[in-house]
Amino acid sequence: MSEQEAERVPVTVAINGERVSAAVEPRLLLSDFIRRRARRTGTHVGCEHGVCGACTVLVDGEPQRSCLIFAVQADGAEIETVEGLSAPGAPLHPVQQAFHERHGMQCGFCTSGFLMSTVALLRERPHPSDEELIDALSGNLCRCTGYRNIVAAAREAERLLAQEPSDG
């Protein structure tokens, strides 16, 4: 097939509750759909082969790597990205607040992926064991921090969320 003949398939997803529709080539990755079509650039793309976890988003509530999903496979899905955690100027989401307070980042490139993995974990297990916490964060790589502050931030997020009436 040449570029000209590439078929386009209609895709509609909800990103942080907003419907986004586009006709896309089947080979377009969900990560590129989110960044280039939907213009939500908070989701970062690191390795693009499912190792670094930077592109982690929630698909129908589950943490998944958006570089390992074709956008056409996500048709009809509810997607949550880091932009959905708090609006610009609004108070930070408790998980964001915890990463801020505990300095769970340095350069910030991996942060949106870590935030989404942490949100997913604490929704499913509000008080995870150390083993569960490490497992949940093991799919995200950070090349700056050495992870200790990230783990501390996730524990702080657990504490902040437990004080809140609603969940994350």
Partner: peptide, 12 residues
């Protein structure tokens, strides 16, 4: 199954 990849892999 708990040892397969990471949660982001197992969920898909």
């Amino acid at each position: 199954i708990r040892q397969i990849g990471h949660p982001q892999i197992r969920s898909r």
